[in-house]
Simulated assay, not measured.
Amino acid sequence: MEIKIRQENKEDFESVFHLIEKAFEKEEYSDHKEQFLVERLRKSEAFIPELSIVAEVEDKVVGHILFTKLEIKNETQTFHSLALAPVSVLPEFQGKGIGSKLILYGHEKVKDLGYKSVILLGHQDYYPRFGYELCKKYNIKMPFDVPAENCMVIKLTENGLSGVSGEVVYPKAFFE
């Protein structure tokens, strides 16, 4: 199976909407509205077109990943980072490495654009394989109450989290 990874374009929006809807349909820890989140984020200042990425198999969009801007703030400093949310793969294509390819490709694009870290809320057993660590290790806190084991960050450069600590500030599109 050949998997093509590329930047999302406007012609993909409808298929990505349905893909995300199907990907999270049976997810226990989901509000089943991730597809609407992606629509809001595309219209926000946090959106970076190069970091909305799709996976295709035989010219069909089967996966999508989105990285958007966020900040980490403490009393004296503001640090720029990205949120990974969501990563979606059609159910019939899950378990075939598509999510992994999207994440790894996305990390390279993130580094190319000069970002040093990515934050996410996700499955504690899945994301560490890509180098994600617990946010609490870096004294990075979420702005809402979630289990610490699901709050993760990755540094994409050697000193990508050097001196970084504080509370994550998500773009308002996450909460609309």
Rank of each mutant, 00 (worst) to 15 (best):
G114F: 01
V118E: 07
L161N: 06
C151D: 11
I48W: 03
I53K: 03
E92S: 13
S81A: 08
F130M: 04
L70F: 00
S88Y: 03
I140P: 02
G114A: 00
L51A: 09
A83H: 02
K141M: 11
L120A: 10
G122M: 06
N139F: 10
Y138E: 02
L102T: 13
P143E: 04
K155N: 06
D145T: 08
A85L: 04
L82F: 02
E92W: 08
E71V: 09
Y115L: 06
I48K: 06
E75M: 12
K60L: 11
D145C: 13
S52D: 15
H64W: 08
V62G: 09
A85R: 07
H80F: 12
V61N: 09
F93P: 00
A85H: 01
I140Y: 02
L113T: 06
H64K: 01
Q124S: 15
V118P: 02
K109M: 05
M142Y: 15
D145N: 15
V54N: 05
K137C: 06
L120M: 05
K69Y: 01
T157L: 05
P49K: 14
V57Q: 15
A83L: 08
S162N: 15
S162Q: 14
Y126I: 03
G106M: 01
K141N: 13
S88I: 05
V89L: 03
N159M: 11
L51D: 10
T157N: 05
L121A: 10
V110F: 07
K141G: 05
E56M: 13
L51Y: 09
I65V: 15
P128G: 05
N139S: 11
T157R: 01
F67D: 01
V153R: 02
V87R: 04
G106S: 10
